[in-house]
């Protein structure tokens, strides 16, 4: 499990993500076996612990699919929906970043901010 300091740093980085990218409504860091490490959302409307567990399942399925097809590692999984977008991406081999946007045209912004956030988080959890 992560140290207390690392958890605080992840929470701070999630706050920064939500501050810097107006499209992000919620963000969660989860372990690949489904435990929540850190989470932030603009309003308390999403069950983020459940999302964390489901994110671990989806990321693992993505890894399995890309391995079966020999497509390398799975970078992102994007769920585009009627009322928003959810993006799942690896921070490292053990952690997943899940971000949620309710703006439908925000995919590029969501992915670029989330990717930068994941890269910075990777340095925190080394």
């Amino acid at each position: 499990m992560l140290s207390k300091l690392a958890t605080i740093q992840l929470e701070q980085r999630l706050s920064k993500l939500i501050e810097q990218c107006s499209a992000v409504d919620a963000a969660v860091v989860a372990t690949l076996d489904g435990y929540t490490c850190a989470m932030k959302q603009r309003s308390q409307q999403y069950p983020l612990e459940r999302l964390a567990t489901m994110g671990s399942t989806l990321m693992s399925l993505g890894d399995t699919i890309t391995a079966e097809l020999r497509l390398g590692t799975c970078d992102n999984i994007i769920s585009e929906n009627k009322n928003g977008i959810v993006a799942f991406m690896h921070i490292d081999d053990n952690l997943v970043l899940i971000t949620l946007a309710t703006q439908k045209n925000a995919l590029g912004m969501l992915l670029s901010h989330s990717r930068r956030c994941a890269e910075e988080m990777k340095k925190v959890v080394v």
């Binding site: 499990m1 690949l32 076996d33 435990y35 671990s56 399942t57 693992s60 399995t64 081999d93 053990n94």
Partner: peptide
């Protein structure tokens, strides 16, 4: 078999 095993963190 297709498997989705990951490392336990707890």
């Amino acid at each position: 078999p297709i498997s989705t095993e990951v490392r336990c963190s707890d």
